[in-house]
Amino acid sequence: MAVDESTVRYIAGLSRLAISNHEAVHYAASLSRILKLVEQMHAVDTRQVEPLAHPQDSPLTLRDDQVTETDHRDTFMALAPATEDGLYLVPKVIE
């Protein structure tokens, strides 16, 4: 399936990527080529096949409900671009 520029802009928006008009043209072409490659899958009949999400079929192991983490706020906050009073700062969120 060929991807057009408006689709590129839509998925770029979903992915929170800023894409210029010029880039949208460029990505539309390469994404279309990739999807063409991907669509070779459709040659195979998979109606009777269960999807495989995990390469191993061992079930999830559950951990005990214990608090073992200690406070590393200062270390973590030192990595952040903007903080104040122990909070991460972002442009105003409107609900």
Partner: peptide
């Protein structure tokens, strides 16, 4: 994100979001 990611990464993110 657009400044931080290179072209191939952005392409794959978009393929992933699409599928």
């Amino acid at each position: 994100r657009s400044e931080g990611f290179g072209e191939e990464v952005k392409r794959r993110i978009m393929i992933g979001s699409y599928v």
